[in-house]
Every structure is written in structure tokens, then in C-alpha cells.
Amino acid sequence: MASQGTKRSYEQMETDGERQNATEIRASVGKMIDGIGRFYIQMCTELKLSDYEGRLIQNSLTIERMVLSAFDERRNKYLEEHPSAGKDPKKTGGPIYKRVDRKWMRELVLYDKEEIRRIWRQANNGDDATAGLTHMMIWHSNLNDTTYQRTRALVRTGMDPRMCSLMQGSTLPRRSGAAGAAVKGVGTMVMELIRMIKRGINDRNFWRGENGRKTRSAYERMCNILKGKFQTAAQRAMMDQVRESRNPGNAEIEDLIFLARSALILRGSVAHKSCLPACVYGPAVASGYDFEKEGYSLVGIDPFKLLQNSQVYSLIRPNENPAHKSQLVWMACNSAAFEDLRVLSFIRGTKVSPRGKLSTRGVQIASNENMDAMESSTLELRSRYWAIRTRSGGNTNQQRASAGQISVQPAFSVQRNLPFDKPTIMAAFTGNTEGRTSDMRAEIIRMMEGAKPEEMSFQGRGVFELSDERAANPIVPSFDMSNEGSYFFGDNAEEYDN
């Protein structure tokens, strides 16, 4: 993207840094990872977990959730003011799984939030270390993106479920800051804005008074975040219109849905970061690795190297396929839920299948599930090659597409044709070009129609051997075009429920 120079890199967003050079960025990201790792080690000690239990991804998720809940100030305040039966607002906890007599047992633990905050700050040299908290939120978000298709949420806001490739980060909490905003897809931002506008339509006082002023500035800020994701002048001009509207209503909703559809071809720039579970960072720190000293990046080879040398386990339900569970977590670790499966298959070195073909449910185990038949197995999170994460949407291309997802959002900077089903997408653009945004709409449609099938995206960008740390010898991959490109292809993934 041309304006790259004016933006802070995501590592800076990730670490609240002012302008830093590459070495400083690597050190501050490393410091953040160190903090998460030290916190995780301490929690495993508190909970008396064995090494194996500490490497269980379900335990990692519970521990991450506990610290996120302990620092969720708004919710904590709300819980104190609106006490609900049987919930102690000062405590947080969740299921911890232990191996007892050759069987997995679930144990519900409860801790004072104050105590968890103390352990977290102690692991982070006394700081609140917001960057580390956001990092864990993005890992949870990436896992949700890989596990669930947001059909219901899309339909509720009037969008087409086939636009799911635009929904990265749709389950990120509001408090995820600049680093969170960077990884949100165009569809996620559109959905947040539509929800806001709908509230304004239904509630006369939404934009009024002292609160209304705050609401208005939040609305304009979200519009600017979305505008910054678009790469064409016409899309940005249309966002200006939406932002400046005196009284946002149905016309703005129409414009936003139009823009979301246009992003299936004229893709937005959305950041991709490899955020790993805390149970990967903990053992690495415990083994003596100093992330701050060595430096770390979320968008280069580092996460690949770390996963190459990590042992992570997962509980497996009786009829689940461990290899499929591994694929789910591998995609989440690489922030690749909406990437082209052919690119992923090449990088991973084994075939990556669409969601609907995987015999696996989510990673988390519900409290009512029976533990008797639970097994555990090693997650295979290694890769054959590594590639640089991208934040450009890439230019655009036609490809055989599917009944489910009709476009992709690249996660890796790797040369390819970008699949999208042009006739299906263009069919949504018939007729409606009147109104105050008509010239911009016409211009956007013209650009979409001009998108050429034979153009290559990320020209000359390749993948790298894991021994090639400096990215000196790019390998331009070859793809098996007979395979499906979309992950949520004609899909039956479970729906995400809060």
C-alpha cells in the first residue's frame, strides 16, 4: 500500500510504541512475548500442572481467558453494579484439565481477579502490559475465525453469508486497541457500523446529549479505520460520505453494504499476525530463551520457528480426527482463516481442507461434555516452508469459486491468482447506482469489472525454506488448481455463540 510509510507498523501498534527502528520493534515485541511466557509459567505453578498438562491447549485457553477477564475493567465495573446470582464479580476462573488415573478430569478453578492481575503485572515488570493482553485477544479471535462461520451475524446486519472472507476479527472485544483495529476485516468494521446506525434509528437519543457526542466521535473513528483499509480513492470518498452524514440511517447502511461487497474484489488491507497460545510461549521462556534479547516478529519467520520446536497437546472428542484438529489450530496460529487453501497447503506441506470436510468441533470443551471418553493427542503445528504475512489485500483475480465463501483475504505475501467468483459478486451490483453516491458507485463498479483474471497478485513473492531466515531465496510455489480455494466452501461450520 502506498501510504505504508505514514502508518505505524503493526509491531508498533502491538507494543504501543512511538516510531521505533526494526531492532527496537523486535525487542519490544519480544518483551511482550516474554511477559506472556513468564505469566503462563507462574500460572502453571499456581495450578500445580504437570509439564504435559501445561502444554494442553484447553488449559492455555482457560488461563488466557482468566487474565483477560481480570483486566476487563468495563465488564468488571458492570458486574459490580449489576450483581447477578451466583456470579462473584471479583473472581474469575474456568475449567482446568488434569490427568488422573490414566483419565482426563475437569476441575473448575476460581481465583481472585486481583490475584491474577498481581501475577500478570509481576510477570511483566510491574506494568499492565496491555500489548500482551491484546495479543491474547487476537489469538482467540484468530481461533474463532478458523472455527466458526459468522453466517447468522452477517444475515442479521443485512449482509450476504458468502462475504465471510471479510469477517476477520469479528469476535475481537471493543477494547483491543490499535492492534485489534489493524486485524479487523472490512466486513467486521461494516458490521460494527451498521449495528451502531441501527441503534440510532431505533433509539432517538442515541446521537443526542453528552453521551451522543461520545457516540458520534466513536462512529467517526470507526469510519476512519474502515476508510484506511480501502485502497481505492472511490471507496475512500464513499467512506467520507458515510462519516460526514448528519443523521446516519438506511442510506448509510446501503452504502456500507455496497462497500463491503466491493471489497470482495477491490480488497481492503487487513493486517495478519501470528499470535500463538500462551502454552507455546511459556515452555520456550522456561527453556531459557530470551525473546527480548533475541527479538521477535509476528509477521516473519519467528512464529514458524517457534511452532517448529513446540509440543502442544489437545483434548480430542471420541469421533474427532486429531489431524483435522491440528489443521484448525495451525490455521489459527498463522492467522489464515480466509487465505486461499492452495497457498496454505503449499506452505504447510500437507493438504489443507475446507472447514466442512474437517471432523472436528471447536477447541474448547463445553462444561456439560462427558470427560470419560476424552483422549488427548499432539497437535501437528509444523510447516514445510515459511512466508511473510501481508497486510495488503493483493490485486484481484477471477477463479472458480464456491457456493460458500466467494473470495479470499490473503494472509501471506505469496504470488498467486486470487480466487473470487466474479459473476456471483457482480450480480449483486445491478441497477442500484442512484442517489448521492452514484458517481462513486459507478466508478467502483467500473474498477471491479476491469479486474483481470490473468493478473498475478504479489508478483514474484515466494515462500522460503525454514533454514532461509533472511528470506534470501524465494520459492514461487505451484498450486494444484483442481483443489478448492475457499475454506468455508459450501460450508456447515458451527455458528459462533458468545
Rank of each mutant, 00 (worst) to 15 (best):
N498Y: 02
Y40Q: 11
V242T: 09
M456K: 14
A27P: 05
R361F: 04
M163E: 03
A323G: 10
R446F: 00
A233K: 02
Q308Y: 00
A263L: 04
A366F: 05
C275I: 14
G490A: 01
R436Y: 05
L276H: 13
R246K: 06
D302S: 14
G132L: 06
Q4P: 00
V363H: 00
D112C: 11
L266T: 13
R150H: 08
V186F: 14
Y496P: 00
L61C: 10
T134C: 14
E380R: 03
E80G: 07
E24T: 10
D439L: 01
Y289S: 11
K273T: 06
Q311W: 01
V312F: 12
G94Q: 09
T130E: 05
Y40M: 04
M440N: 09
N205H: 04
K325M: 10
L226M: 10
Y52H: 06
E469I: 10
F420K: 00
A336H: 02
I316F: 04
L47I: 12
N321E: 02
F346S: 10
K293A: 05
W104I: 14
S335Q: 12
E220G: 12
K31P: 12
T396Y: 11
C223R: 03
A129D: 00
Q399V: 15
M136S: 07
E454R: 00
I316K: 00
F479L: 11
E320I: 03
D439F: 00
E454N: 02
F420W: 03
G485A: 03
A427L: 15
E484M: 07
D112H: 11
A153Y: 06
R162K: 12
T92W: 06
Q415C: 01
R75M: 07
S367H: 05
T430E: 00
E210C: 11
D290W: 05
G404R: 04
R246Q: 14
I96V: 14
L68K: 11
L344K: 11
E11D: 13
A271F: 10
Q58P: 11
Y289R: 13
E465V: 00
F464N: 00
L466A: 08
Q311T: 15
A401L: 00
G462D: 01
A260G: 11
E455F: 07
P474Q: 02
M66P: 04
S467M: 14
D340V: 09
E14I: 07
T23E: 01
I445V: 13
H272D: 03
M159K: 05
L341V: 14
F464V: 02
D203I: 03
G362D: 15
